[in-house]
């Protein structure tokens, strides 16, 4: 009893350190993406061919790339674009995924069957193929990436929420609430959402990581966004040929991806026992 609560307390402290580090990393990424483009006056697309591959710490704070563009400005704009797109993607996957999962669990019957078939259909498609297909429709645009990734990612929210909610809706607490005269909205708000919120949080953290990676990887292979847009994946592609002359430059976008994913994993993950 007391021993157990002392143990829980210790675990809570450990989790919070871990979470705190993750939150700090994410706060850095978020603030850099939000404020960076405003604070850095330089134009991320402005070339200065007489000052290419300037070292870090010169008149360019983070150096300049192979076209003499400010790395700081490019990195700030890329962070806004990549992280913002990832955030938007997981939100627009989580909201319909959760809502449809709840509807399927509540209604059952043919509603559930149709939704499950739909989710299975999406799962049967290779996710990137869908994104590639959409990207082919509108080369260089943002929306195919966003739409494609959301269409792929909502399924896991749907499946997790439906499975958890089905169990919860059959539980005595929900039966009691129904007998006490409460409707679906109250049951979802009071009995279901508090239980599934941590699960959704974890899925969103990992989903955002997957989205960052997917956006970066697609841009890296030249699908989706195109130069001169500043984006982590594009920056990696552009700087890769200069890895011998300016290895530090390549590390900047790679480091941003690393920090973002690490932060998300620390926040969303669970401590090993």
């Amino acid at each position: 009893m007391n021993g157990a609560s002392a143990r829980d307390g210790a675990a809570a402290v450990r989790v919070s350190t871990r979470r705190a580090v993750g939150m700090a990393l994410l706060a850095f990424v978020f603030l850099f993406g939000l404020l960076g483009p405003m604070l850095v006056a330089a134009d991320p697309a402005r070339q200065n061919l007489s000052r290419i591959l300037a070292p870090i710490g010169s008149d360019f704070l983070l150096g300049s790339d192979h076209l003499g563009r400010s790395m700081l400005a490019r990195l700030a704009h890329a962070t806004r674009l990549s992280a913002g797109l990832a955030l938007l993607t997981v939100i627009s996957a989580a909201v319909p995924g959760t809502a449809l999962g709840l509807v399927a669990a509540w209604r059952g019957g043919w509603t559930e069957r149709v939704l499950v078939a739909l989710a299975d259909g999406v799962l049967a498609l290779p996710g990137l193929l869908l994104v590639l297909l959409l990207a082919a429709l509108a080369p260089g645009d943002l929306w195919p990436l966003y739409l494609g990734l959301s269409l792929v990612l909502w399924v896991e929210y749907f499946r997790v929420v439906r499975a958890t909610a089905t169990t919860l809706l059959a539980s005595p607490q929900v039966e009691a609430a129904r007998l006490l005269g409460f409707g679906p909205l109250h049951v979802v708000r009071r009995h279901v959402l508090p239980e599934i919120a941590p699960l959704i949080g974890t899925l969103m953290a990992f989903g955002a990581g997957a989205a960052v990676m997917a956006i970066g990887a697609l841009s890296f292979v030249g699908i989706g966004l195109r130069p001169p847009v500043a984006e982590w994946g594009i920056m990696l592609t552009e700087l890769l040929p200069y890895h011998a002359e300016a290895p530090g430059l390549l590390l900047l976008p790679a480091g941003m991806i690393f920090v973002t994913i690490l932060g998300l994993q620390l926040v969303g993950g669970r401590d090993p026992r």
Binding site: S171, P172, Q173, E175, A176, A177, L179, L180, R190, H191, P194, E195
Partner: peptide, 16 residues
């Protein structure tokens, strides 16, 4: 028409 359950904690929202 109401019901009282076998396992009292199971009949309440655990986080409220």
């Amino acid at each position: 028409f109401q019901k009282i359950y076998q396992d009292p904690p199971a009949a309440f929202a655990p986080r409220a």
